[in-house]
Design a binder for these strands. Structure first.
Lengths: 252, 252
DNA sequence: CGAAACGTTGACTTGTTTCAATAACTGTGG
DNA sequence: CCACAGTTATTGAAACAAGTCAACGTTTCG
């Protein structure tokens, strides 16, 4: 995940103009080897002492950590243009697993070759440093989501953020995008149970905010969605008493 | 926060030997300027388009993001040896604020000088890349805490992790360490309300796991603490019925 | 000494999880 | 083409963890 600079809660910065193709030079290194993976296939094994870095060409992947009891926290979704495993390759040990969410094509580079390339070509360091820095900012956004936003705000926020990234990658049109991940996977990213996420999605759908169905996300009311994404846990969800029926989302 | 490599949940790796003084070269750059800050004083302003990078010499600091309603998510605690603002300086825009938690001394370097130094001295890139990568791993740990661990596990886990970092920095002795942060601040890092954190700490104290008082943390039962830190949300907290009285922590 | 943080506690409310059960979808082989 | 198994989605009811509100103790510091 190297591609996030602006999230739903902060507007793009001047730096953005330079961002998208930072890694083009790196991705073109001849040492990269084209590989394919099937859905649910492991791309990076957690704990691997000599992992590869990848440049995702097509499809979706995700990074995750497994807990003792089988619980899973999804740390990031990867879309084409991202470089999963970059930080791990630099440290020489992968701290998280990475799996394909759809069939994917990715260029791989062994960690030692990545480090060698950085030594021999000083011009390579700058884009990699920026990529890692953006990853750090994306992780911050995730921490804010998980720590301080309600389930509804978190959900809307992440879907908006994904939309912005896809838009920048030219993979989104208008108010929606193809989102080939299951509710289970999304729930594991949002720190929610799949059941509760399902209820959240239902409410968002019934309230006309967005629809998450059949591999597609459509924002029926993008402005309201953006407003919702900013609300945090103790925001008064009920501007007026005796509101219609099922919804407890902040009104327009 | 550049200093975490191993967390309470994963053992140190072979890479660790090289880690601690990665940034010594950087910190010694003549351009660094020594600065002092008082508790609660702003070191980095969120949104600053030309931030500084810092090398923390003494005292504690923390990075945070503010939400619309005044809520705060603390993203990281910084101890001596850490380099708050590194990623932000590289991107040219600070995505999070940073404040002193105690009186601190820090060396500062303007972002443009940092970028210039990286261009002119190719040997500098490698340690900075590793520092950022470690920061990424630390953020992952935080996401797992916030997303998938119970309040008790999260709390114990973070206090253990802080202990390990302080140990490596030579600032911890035996089973405890000086921890000059308020419960409010810790709660904002753990994604909990201060009130609930207070109850969690009381239970941990009454159960003989650890004490967090008067600026000090003491682990009365380190082994049990480590076990608790690994438990996640749906772990059965009650191995036997009719347990003593107040505790709902997993037994020894 | 008084003010202002910070810490502590109780009672109550709410969001989220869990359990259990059923429907809808997907791919596969007969 | 349909029946099957397996995953994913959906729903209700009940349990629980964490948050909110209000109050009071405690420490710190000017």
């Amino acid at each position: 995940m190297t591609d996030i600079r602006a999230s739903a809660t902060r507007s793009p910065t001047g730096d953005d103009a330079t961002g998208d193709n930072d890694l083009a030079a790196l991705a073109l290194l001849p040492a990269f080897r084209r590989r394919q993976f099937q859905p649910d296939q492991e791309v990076i094994r957690e704990g691997d002492p000599a992992p590869h870095a990848y440049a995702l060409v097509s499809g979706w992947a995700f990074s995750y950590r497994l807990l003792a009891d089988g619980t899973r926290q999804v740390l990031a979704f990867h879309i084409p243009g991202d470089m999963p495993g970059l930080a791990d390759a630099l440290l020489g040990r992968s701290s998280a697993g990475c799996k394909a969410a759809t069939p994917i094509v990715a260029n791989s580079l062994p960690a030692y070759q990545l480090r060698a390339a950085l030594t021999h070509d000083p011009g390579l360091a700058a884009p990699v440093l920026r990529a890692l820095s953006r990853e750090a900012v994306a992780a911050q956004e995730r921490m804010v989501d998980l720590g301080r936003r309600s389930a509804v705000a978190r959900t809307v926020h992440m879907l908006l953020e994904l939309g912005e990234r896809l838009q920048r990658a030219g993979m989104a049109v208008g108010n929606g995008y193809a989102c080939p991940i299951s509710q289970i996977l999304l729930a594991d990213a949002l720190g929610l149970s799949a059941i509760h996420l399902n209820r959240v999605l239902r409410r968002l759908r019934e309230d006309g905010v967005l629809r998450f169905r059949a591999g597609h996300v459509v924002f029926d009311d993008p402005a309201r969605a953006r407003r919702l994404a900013l609300s945090s846990r103790q925001d008064t969800p009920e501007p007026y008493p005796g509101r219609p029926r099922h919804s407890t989302l902040p009104g327009p």
